[in-house]
Structure formats: structure tokens, C-alpha cells
């Protein structure tokens, strides 16, 4: 079923359509929440909150083609709200930054799976070390694949700034990754 039909049925109160929509986008929403929030437990709560907000505002998304940026905008706002609340009321214990057990991979063999999971953890750690704006641009452009115009509209900055920032953010991320992996990251990839 295409997204437009799914959305229309959801607006009409079709429970099955809503379940299908949640199943279709849960990984993406959870992934966004995980990258913003940084730990699995909070990300789960935030992802739920994101879906509740999406459900409440379903009527405001008129075009199916605009659904992804619209959903990511809601996700971003919910994550920012959560981070603000967390800053105002910090957790009692430190949350480990490497808590990325949910980054499960679909690699066939255990060795390959371990390697892929390691790469993902490394990437996540490097992303967490980026500046806030660079992290957002990496998340929205490189990970979620939004266009420059969509990101500019979402972050309320000029398109040119997004473009130049995007290259700088990628370079910064590459530096972090190389530094964290002891230059193995690029070499592994060149080898593979």
C-alpha cells in the first residue's frame, strides 16, 4: 500500500493503517531518536513520543511526498525537547556513550556481524563528538538523506550554509573516525 493511501486511512481512524505506518517508520524514527538522545532507553521513550505527536498532527501533513521531512521535523523537535528536559533535570547516573546495543546489523556471519557492529558503534561515537550543528547536518543529510533545501528549511539557515557546513561536517566526522579507529577505518574500507 502506498504512503498516500496509508495516510488517508490513518486520518480516518483506521487502526490497521496506523499500525502499518508505525511499523514502516519505526526504525527510522528510533534511529533518529537514538542519534539525538544518545542512549537506547531514552531513545525508545522519545520515539514513542514522536509517534504520538505524528498521530496528533496527521491532518497537517497533506502530501505524502512531504511526509519524511515532516516526520523528521517532528522527530527533531521532540528530541530537542527531551534534551532540554534532560539538561534541566540531569539523570542520576552517567549514560555510557557506547550504549549502542540496538544497532543490530544484518550481516550473515558472526565475524562480519561483529565487524559491522563495531563500525556502527565507532561511527555513532564519532557522531556524538561532533558539534551540535554538524551532528544535525550529518544526521539529516548523510544519514536520513534529506535535500539541502529541506535541511535549510528545517534548521532555518541558508542553503549555501548547509552545503558548506555539510562538507565541513563530513570532513570533521572523517577526522574523528580516523582518530578513534587509529586510521584503521579508512584502511579497512580501502582494503574491502
Amino acid at each position: 500500500m502506498d504512503l498516500a493511501t496509508l495516510l488517508q486511512r490513518c486520518r480516518g481512524g483506521d487502526e490497521l493503517a496506523w499500525e502499518a505506518l508505525v511499523r514502516q517508520h519505526q526504525s527510522r524514527v528510533y534511529g533518529v531518536a537514538l542519534h539525538y538522545v544518545g542512549n537506547a532507553e531514552d531513545a525508545r521513550d522519545v520515539a514513542q513520543e514522536i509517534f504520538v505527536r505524528i498521530y496528533k498532527k496527521l491532518d497537517s501533513c497533506s502530501e505524502a511526498s512531504r511526509f519524511l521531512p515532516w516526520m523528521l521535523r517532528i522527530a527533531r523537535n521532540a528530541c530537542i525537547d527531551h534534551i532540554r528536559r534532560r539538561r534541566a533535570r540531569p539523570p542520576r547516573h552517567d549514560i555510557p556513550a557506547q550504549e549502542m546495543n540496538d544497532l543490530a546489523s544484518s550481516a550473515p556471519g558472526p565475524e562480519e556481524q561483529w565487524r559491522e557492529d563495531s563500525r556502527k558503534r565507532l561511527l555513532h561515537l564519532a557522531i556524538q563528538k561532533l558539534s551540535e550543528l554538524n551532528r544535525e547536518i550529518i544526521l539529516l543529510k548523510e544519514i536520513q538523506g534529506l535535500s539541502l533545501e529541506e535541511i535549510a528549511s528545517m534548521l532555518d539557515i541558508p542553503v549555501g550554509t548547509v552545503k558548506s557546513r555539510s562538507n565541513r561536517a563530513r570532513l570533521e566526522l572523517a577526522r574523528k573516525v580516523v582518530a578513534l579507529s587509529g586510521a584503521r577505518y579508512g584502511a579497512e574500507n580501502a582494503g574491502s
Partner: peptide, 25 residues
């Protein structure tokens, strides 16, 4: 090294877009 990392990132970052939550989600 940076160039190799950038090449690897262009494919690896896409794989981070979706993360499966637990079954009860």
C-alpha cells in the same frame, strides 16, 4: 586516510538511518 574515511562514510552512514527497536515497541 581522510579520503578513504570519507568514501567509507558515504556508505556506512546510510546504514545508520534505521535502527530496529525492541519487539514491544
Amino acid at each position: 586516510q581522510l579520503a578513504s574515511a570519507l568514501v567509507a562514510l558515504s556508505t556506512d552512514l546510510v546504514a545508520l538511518a534505521e535502527v530496529e527497536p525492541d519487539a514491544k515497541f
